[in-house]
Structure formats: structure tokens, C-alpha cells
Design a protein around this nucleic acid. Sequence first.
RNA 1: GGAGAGAUGGCCGAGUCGGCUGAAGGCGCUCGCCUGCUAAGCGAGUGUAGGGUCAAAAGCUCUACCGAGGGUUCGAAUCCCUCUCUCUCCGCCA
Length: 427
Amino acid sequence: MLDIRFVRENLETVDHMLQNRQMGMDLKPFIQLDENRRNILREVEELKHQRNVASDEISQLKREKKDASGRIEEMREVSQRIKNLDQKLAGIEEDFREFLLHIPNIPHHSVPVGKDEEDNALYKSWGEIPSFRFDPKPHWEVGERLGILDFERAARMTGARFAVYWGMGAALERAIISFMLDVHTRKHGYKEVLPPVIVNGTSLMGTGQLPKFKEDLFKLEGLDYYLIPTAEVPVTNIHAGEVIEEENLPKLYTAFTPCFRSEAGSYGKDTRGLIRQHQFNKVELVRITTPENSYQELESLLENAETILQELGLPYRVVTLCTGDMGFSASKTYDIEVWLPGQNTHREISSCSNFEDFQARRAGIRLRRKGQTKTELAHTLNGSGLAVGRTLLAILENYQQEDGSVIIPDALRPYLHGAERITPDKH
RNA sequence: GGAGAGAUGGCCGAGUCGGCUGAAGGCGCUCGCCUGCUAAGCGAGUGUAGGGUCAAAAGCUCUACCGAGGGUUCGAAUCCCUCUCUCUCCGCCA
């Protein structure tokens, strides 16, 4: 959510930003709404002031045992007017808030202007794209041949876009999770948290998934409860409504959680394999910082995510998302795309964003400087560190051997009792 | 699921028959004074949001907020209703 005053005073900037984001949105009704709102507010506050003054007089008169019925009679009418205006105001304020909640964040000036993913800018890349002496297979073939991934049975017990992991597949997933958490907590200084994977609507409002992206979420029937689409939601909301002392910033949190996404609107896309599942595991990185440090913190967060890929020896590139491809709440986003030889392409494995004060304003995350009484909004950031399922499939594709086995990257072996290779598993 | 108790400012805690209570008192914190140092003491200050004024900030001023939402009333932290959460006991349970 943007600052109302900012929108009011920088209409052209906001309008320009909306165009850059490829969003047609007419701000005129919004400005009209804002004006109405303030007009009524002025009127009703004046009446309330009258009422408060009269209230004092009445109590004064009563204490002196004098007659106050005249004033009371007057105020009866004023109160009625207040009631009517308050009602009118409530309606306008609801519309106003609704509008404001649908305006996306303003892109940082360093973000390239562009239409779609074609216009994203390459930021850096790491690792050699491996060459194979044989035709590398997509991970679903590698996984099914090894007997560690089972899409058929998952489809039977649940439906499309789910998977059963068997044996070394399940163990590898678990190893990846532990490995990532260890790197982030021990090397990068994050605090590990294990949050609820069900949150209420207010939390989703706070991080920006609601009200606009309701259809992407799984909602529990009859309840204001949702399965989280990412740990960003519960973890960022840890400090919702709080004032954090500046000396306690930045906050660095990492969390492993399953994530749930309805994937509405992506029918027919990535239907095979682990790429796009309704349920997947992710290790998330969240930072809460002061405004002046947040862009530096974004670089650092990105590097934290990159470290995982480097230690696993998976080649990747980083792109800066352009204005047209960026998410609703973000000011700037880097996507890390891992190389997948089985599909001969790069695929997103992490997305690292600075939200500046956009989420903080919605969720009420503030900071207080030393010696100051005033509070200000904090900046929030997050990124995947990394998507676990996609990491696993990247390993299957990059480390597959001609005989169908898969070499286990060195970094993961301690988490798998020293195992060096995945070979076909019977069950 | 059944029975009961509660929710007030950063924290603890008082609010009588509804009216000088944005909220006593204490703690904490900030600034100043005092003091060989420390401790203690003294003085002042110390919530959030939204309006208005202002070129802007500061300042000044108004309005709202005592878990949330509604109601009664000229007037609600105080009365009524609904909801949420916390605690205790019982039941069930990984």
C-alpha cells in the first residue's frame, strides 16, 4: 500500500508507474474519493467538536443543579447529523481503502522499464553450462526411472500437480532442507523460525496477496484461514503491528515451510514434473531493515540465496525483473534462474525482492530510532533460499549419469549418511 | 466440546452511581540538574492514526482510539448485544 499523501501529491508519478507496470488504472475516481472523504471528515469533526464542548457544558450545568434540557435538545439533533455523516464516511472510506489496496508498489529507479519477461535484464551468471556425452533427460524421467518420484499415485490419491517422493528422493528433499537451513543460520546469521502454514486474511493483506490475488490461494472452507503460498506471509507478519527498536535491526529470519498455490490460470503450463506443484517445500529468507539499508540488504540476501546454488555446483543466472514482470508488492526483484539441461533452459529457483515500506505500511511494521519518539515504517525484503523441489529437480537433471544414476553433490552427502549416488530403488 | 475468569498506554496496574480520565499510581525510557565514581535523589518530558493550518518541516489545533464490531444516551473505558483472543478446571487428543 502506498502512502495516501504521496499518491495525492505525486499523481503523475503514480500514473506513470502504473503504465510502466502494464496496468491500466484510472486514478481520477480515487482522487475524487479522497476529496469527498476529507470534506466529510472536516464537517463531521467540527460537529464532534461542538458535541464535546456541549457535553462539558451539560455536565457543568448538572453539577450546578441547573437545567440543561435546552442544550440536550440541541445536541440530540447534532448527534443525529453526526451519525448520518459517520455512516456516509464509512462507506466512502471502504471504497477508498479498497482502491488504495489495489495500487501496486512503485518500482525502484534502477528497475528496467519493460513489458514482460523478455525485457528482464541479465544481472550476473555463475557456473559453466555442462555438456553431456548423452542426451540429458528431464527430471521426471530421471526420477521415475530411479523410482524416487511418483506422479501417478499422487494423482490418484489427490490430483494433478502433486508428487509422492520415495526412498532416496524423500531423503534428498529432507537433506536439501537441512543443508539450506544450516547454511543460512550458521554462515549467514539468520534465525530459524517454524511458523504456522495456515494464516488469516489480515496477514495475507499485510504482505499483499490479498485482496487482489485471492484466486491463487487455497482457502479453508467456512473459515478466514488460508494455506500459505509462501513463508513470506507468516514470517513477515511476525512483527505486524509492532515497533522495533532500530538497534535490533536488521532482523534476519529463515524458515522452512511447505507452500500451497492453486495455480489458477496456469492450466496446461508445466504439467509434467516438479516445476509447478500445488504443494512444494521452500526455505525462505526474510529481512526487516531500516529504509537507508534496504537495497544493500537486497544484494546481501541475493548472495545468500546464490551461495546455496554455488555450494551445490548448479549453474545459474540472475535477472533483474523489468517493471512489467515484477510482482504487485515489490519495488525491485531479482530472479535466480537455475540451468536445467534436461529441458535445455533456465528456470526460476528463487525470487528476491525489496518491498520497501509497501508491506510495512499494510502490516504496521515500524521502527524507532534511538532517542526518537516518532516511529517510521521499516523496509521488508524476502527471497527464496531456495525452492526445495526445484533444487531437487535441478540436481537430478544436472547430476544425471548415462547409466541413469544421479551423483549426489558433495555438500549434501553429510546429510545422507555419506551416500554418493542415487541408484534405482525398488519398492 | 462443557464450566468459569479476564482483555486498559512500552510494561505493571487503578478507574466509584455513565460526564474536567488520553486515561490515577508505579516501573521503564529520554533530556536536564545534583553528586569524587557508581547508586540514590530532584525537575521536565515520554502512545498511535487521521484531518486542519503551513511552500515545507517544526509548531499549533481538531477528531478518533481503553481486545474487535454494533447498540443505548445530549454524552460510554464505564451500561447492553455479538465476535475474537488469553487463562483455569473437566472431557478428548498427536
